[in-house]
Nucleic acid binder design. Structure first.
Lengths: 247, 247
DNA sequence: ATAATAACAATCAGGATATCCTGTTTTTAT
DNA sequence: ATAAAAACAGGATATCCTGATTGTTATTAT
């Protein structure tokens, strides 16, 4: 997994928690920059490079907007071009085929989701990071975004397309592994817990929160949704404290 | 909610559990017959009625197959007609427009899901019905079907289409309410539990199991999926036994 | 028996969509 | 300064899909 580069600090005892956190955050920012489709922002790029990156970003953002708003089935290249306020020719210049565009959109959506995850996790105060409900809240907020809606659309579309499926799956596993590795760094209470238990806790949150969101048409009552999230939080807490007898 | 007709027995004390179960099962079968798109199977129908119902069923089944196999975006009326082995003219005779077809497919899918739910729930032995893992198993099996894949496709497509959205939502809430009402009948241990707690347990299972299934590309390891289901089972058990402190 | 109706079958027209292709303008390299 | 290349713009086309139309055969009602 090339995404996950361990922090170089020798021992957790040596560095303070604060320093480790800062190191993790700067490393995460570096990772985000690495995935940034607009490489031109940093380097001293030529005019053409900057212009190209700019329109490509506009196209990708427009595609996400279309996917989130109209769904995959109704998203056409013309729609995207119109939303990005460029001509179909310009669109074709940057992305020769539709699947080429979609492939790039997949990469872009994962980049955006990574960035949003970073935003959510750093928004939490240290106190909230010691509270399990903080973790569940991160995932719940993470899911209520246009990027996640686009992600969902691409997810189901990729499942029926071998080519896109491979790209999507690769990025999905990558992002899952990455966000998983951030947990013990940002949520210190989990450092003592075994990898398997942490994995289980993460899987439950991911599945339950995503299922809760996608079932929002059926589970319409806000109280019911809150109750489920609270229950998940309590389960996770008990799991962490070893109060649940596994196997 | 016209779907849910309470059993006419006056008091649970009066009738034995066995009788109540049988009554519930026959009532459920009646409900399934009521939703059956092929009304002609029972009545002494004319040749034309039977023929018509037969091809309509073939079309609906073909549509489900196409949705599950190729996804909503790639499902065309031509595909469906070809899969059903009928001409496009015949297709158009029965379903004048595509949205008319899709609307019927939605109804059909919910009918099929209801039937599958009934199949799963009656397959459980009485012993397994007293075990929470039995309940979780029912939902897990319920989700691993072509019908559920078609349901998912229709679910996301309906979210972006006002007309279909209304049909879908109505049926979804109906099915949810119906399956919810079956729980205390088939799972006797839940009779003593409050409606709110039962609702919460049901919501957690629905969300977690559905999320687990839709994330199967990411949570690829069978062990991880089993672990999540076991954890959900344990949570539900503790919830039922009042071992979890709510609010 | 016959008219009406239903269940198809087979084309056709119209529209949408992805891709191609030919220009035009602007930037960059030499 | 000039050639090459990149960043567009927009019309043309081929394909696919939906829905309409017409025709044919089987059945039902009277």
């Amino acid at each position: 997994m090339n995404v996950i580069k361990k922090i170089k600090s020798a021992d957790p005892e040596d560095v303070s928690a604060e320093e480790a956190l800062k190191a993790a955050m700067s490393q995460m920012e570096a990772e985000i920059i690495r995935l940034d489709p607009d490489k031109s922002a940093n380097d001293e790029a030529s005019w053409q490079e900057r212009k190209s990156a700019q329109t490509r970003l506009a196209i990708l953002a427009a595609a996400v907007e279309c996917l989130a708003k109209h769904g995959y089935a109704k998203t056409t290249t013309q729609q995207v071009a119109a939303t990005a306020k460029i001509s179909r020719g310009a669109m074709l210049h940057h992305y020769a085929t539709k699947s080429e565009l979609i492939a790039s959109v997949i990469e872009y959506v994962f980049y955006r989701r990574m960035k949003l995850f970073f935003g959510e996790i750093t928004r939490l105060s240290e106190e909230r990071r010691r509270d399990v409900t903080g973790g569940v809240e991160v995932y719940w907020n993470w899911v209520q975004t246009p990027e996640f809606d686009a992600f969902l659309e691409l997810s189901i579309a990729s499942r029926k397309d071998a080519e896109l499926g491979e790209i999507f799956e690769t990025r999905a596993i990558e992002l899952d592994a990455y966000s998983f590795d951030q947990i013990p760094i940002f949520f210190p209470e989990w450092k003592a817990v075994s990898k398997e238990t942490l994995r289980l806790a993460n899987d439950l949150i991911v599945a339950a929160i995503q299922g809760l969101y996608t079932n929002r048409q059926i589970i319409t009552d806000r109280k019911r949704r809150t109750a489920v999230r609270d229950l998940v939080s309590k389960t996770i807490l008990m799991l962490r404290e070893g109060e649940i007898d596994l196997n």
